[in-house]
């Protein structure tokens, strides 16, 4: 019996968690206060099965084809893709900077790993984001507990494996507390090789 708002259809393959897609777009000249961020972010759909995911995903624009300053977010249902959300408050994220042209493929691989529960870190994963920017695109994966080093290392190592990253790829971690403090997602990160 499915007690959630969205349930897998008959004969479909259920996901471990329901996931919600969000989309946001910002005019770079405007300050990114948390209020304007919340106003700019839109929930676009929730999926409960592998088949529902593909039906939804196939209708979305590929992130690499988006222009300007925009983001796709895929988060567990009930978790807002905001630093202030209860599930994110003590968390942080791994960041991978991509040169232009790679975002669509890497985004698909990271979300397939998340939907398929490849990270093996219990309830720790909150969601994933692809951020389209002018010079580069950025992939991030958010987890609940930023000071749990065993978890964050495992997420980093899984990312390397599922994205097939070269061993010398620079990985950066930033706690949401630090993001809140300097009001920036991707500045002043901690570099890990």
């Amino acid at each position: 019996v499915c007690l959630q708002t969205v349930c897998p259809g008959a004969g479909e393959h259920p996901l471990q968690y329901n996931y919600t897609f969000w989309y946001s777009r910002r005019t770079p000249s405007r300050p990114a206060s948390s209020q304007s961020y919340e106003q700019n972010i839109r929930q676009i759909g929730t999926v409960a099965s592998v088949e529902q995911f593909w039906r939804f995903y196939s209708h979305l624009v590929r992130p690499g084809d988006l222009s300007g300053h925009s983001d796709f977010h895929l988060f567990k249902e009930g978790i807002k893709p905001m630093w202030e959300d209860e599930s994110n408050r003590s968390g942080g994220k791994w960041i991978i900077r991509l040169r232009k042209g790679l975002a669509s493929r890497f985004w698909e691989n990271i979300i397939l790993a998340m939907l398929g529960e490849q990270f093996m870190v219990g309830e720790e994963i909150c969601g994933a984001v692809v951020s389209i920017r002018f010079q580069e695109d950025i992939l991030s994966i958010w987890n609940r507990t930023s000071n749990d080093q065993m978890t964050t290392s495992r997420i980093r190592d899984t990312l390397r494996r599922v994205l097939n990253l070269p061993t010398n790829t620079i990985m950066e971690y930033k706690t949401h507390n630090d993001s809140l403090r300097d009001n920036s997602s991707f500045r002043n990160t901690k570099i890990s090789l």
Binding site: G9, A113, E117
Partner: peptide, 21 residues
Amino acid sequence: GTRIIYDRKFLLECRSSPVTK
């Protein structure tokens, strides 16, 4: 409880062969 784990290959196969009801 049991975790529902899918590898990339399986997920991609589900894309090309959707469930028929």
